[in-house]
């Protein structure tokens, strides 16, 4: 079952894994932005999560603890952002950018001495008997637990945002913080929790890079994945399932174009290289076109102070 030298089963299985970091980070950022906060520090939180996860996994020998460590590291870093923007009402765009720079710097410093170490492997979750099934095996059963976790989180966030009271509160805070405040909700506290959640997700996504995708620590290992995640949130018009589509499209076409190059495709390499960016944006824009309900949360990027 090969098309031009490329096995689509392996391709799909690979893309599901390679999309995980972006997907997790973008899901986290979706919640943050739905609560009306624009945190541009995703890249910084990812890289600090990549380092935090790596250190914990190497020290404890447990990759699961590593992912938890990565999530914690991301959340802690995001709390700096939360404190600055929610308590001291600093500008969100500037603070977010600073957070990225800060995260990159701190991780570079903290990562000294962790170069060239191999972390404990993150193993496939289900038994080989299932993973070896033809076609469905590699695609549905051959992954590590984080891949399933990322898909489950997409479903959970979709449900929470759409159908629960918590989701309604988050959306209310993001659409009109004045109204939410008038109803008695603690706007800044809710936002702070959303920011911490977003940080944890980004940190976990970063940990997936250093523990599973590349399995090693290198300075600046996320290399811009956080910015891709930010873009996907916008183009997916703040909806979890579309975030998943965007992340899979981007991851998928990245993997596909590399495979096409190996297989000796007739399409020039220049076009292949830009394809992931172009196609992801195009598809998501077309999906969102012509619908009114796709706008950004109305209070996105605005700080709130209760005394007003």
């Amino acid at each position: 079952m090969d098309f031009g030298g490329i096995n689509p089963v392996i391709l799909i299985a690979t893309l599901m894994a390679s999309a995980v970091p972006i997907l997790l980070a973008a899901l986290g950022e979706t919640v943050v932005e739905r609560a009306g906060v624009l945190n541009l520090g995703v890249e910084g939180m990812m890289v600090i999560g990549a380092l935090g996860g790596f250190i914990v996994a190497v020290q404890t020998g447990s990759p699961v603890l590593g992912f938890i460590g990565g999530a914690l590291a991301g959340a802690v870093l995001s709390l700096i952002f939360a404190a600055l923007t929610q308590v001291f009402l600093a500008n969100q765009v500037a603070t977010g950018l600073a957070l990225t720079l800060f995260g990159l710097g701190v991780s570079s410093l903290g990562g000294q001495g962790y170069n060239g170490i191999k972390p404990p492997p993150t193993e496939q979750l289900l038994p080989d008997a299932l993973a070896d099934l033809p076609v469905v095996g590699p695609i549905f059963f051959g992954h590590d637990w984080v891949v399933y976790f990322s898909i489950a989180m997409t479903a959970v966030l979709w449900w929470v945002l759409k159908a629960t009271r918590v989701g309604l509160i988050i959306r209310a805070v993001g659409e009109s913080h004045e109204a939410a405040h008038a109803l008695g909700y603690k706007v800044n506290r809710i936002r702070l929790m959303c920011i911490a959640f977003g940080g944890a997700m980004a940190g976990m996504g970063g940990a997936y890079v250093s523990l599973a995708r590349v399995p090693q620590w290198v300075d600046g290992i996320t290399a811009g994945a956080g910015w891709i995640a930010l873009a996907i949130v916008v183009f997916a018009s703040w909806r979890p399932w579309r975030v998943l589509i965007g992340a899979y499209l981007f991851g998928g076409i990245t993997v596909l174009q590399l495979n096409l190059q190996v297989a000796g495709s007739v399409i020039p390499v220049e076009y292949l290289s830009m394809a992931p960016y172009l196609i992801t944006i195009l598809v998501l824009v077309i999906m969102s076109a012509g619908r009114k309900a796709n706008g950004a949360p109305a209070a996105l990027g605005q700080n709130f102070h209760a005394s007003r």
Partner: peptide, 18 residues
């Protein structure tokens, strides 16, 4: 790219897969 560990790993994986 000169430096993008995840992409470099993906490229290596594409080669290995084939």
């Amino acid at each position: 790219t000169w430096f993008d560990p995840a992409k470099e790993a993906d490229a290596a994986k594409a080669l290995i897969d084939q």
